[in-house]
Amino acid sequence: METIQNLFTDPAIYRLLTIVILSIFLGIEVIGRVPSVLHTPLMSGANAIHGVVIIGAIIVMGQARADDYLALTLGFWAVILGTLNVVGGFVVTDRMLEMFSKKKAKK
């Protein structure tokens, strides 16, 4: 019960909650009417964006004590995986879209 109350009384949590709700609507609104040709690149782009988890991984890694090998090892992997998600995701999306623009330029 206390936790639920905290949702509304703790300003930090309340702020985050507001962001969540607004972002949900924004996400729906932004995608709106995307042509089916763009489904794959859009999915791939969104895939890269959720790579923001990497920020969490960096924070974890940066706060790990120098003798905490478990946290260091896992955190190291977390940063690698997060980077793969971000970098790989954006590069793949760009490659897909490059082909769209190539034919546009020729037209």
Binding site: S23, M43, I55, G56
Partner: peptide, 29 residues
């Protein structure tokens, strides 16, 4: 959504917006 939970954990707005945006846009997609 998992990324967004990270946003809660670290009180981090960009993880939250990024995660939730993808969560909701992904669902619509």
């Amino acid at each position: 959504v998992a990324a967004a939970f990270g946003g809660f954990l670290y009180n981090n707005p960009v993880m939250l917006t990024g995660g939730i945006l993808v969560g909701s846009a992904g669902t619509i997609l």
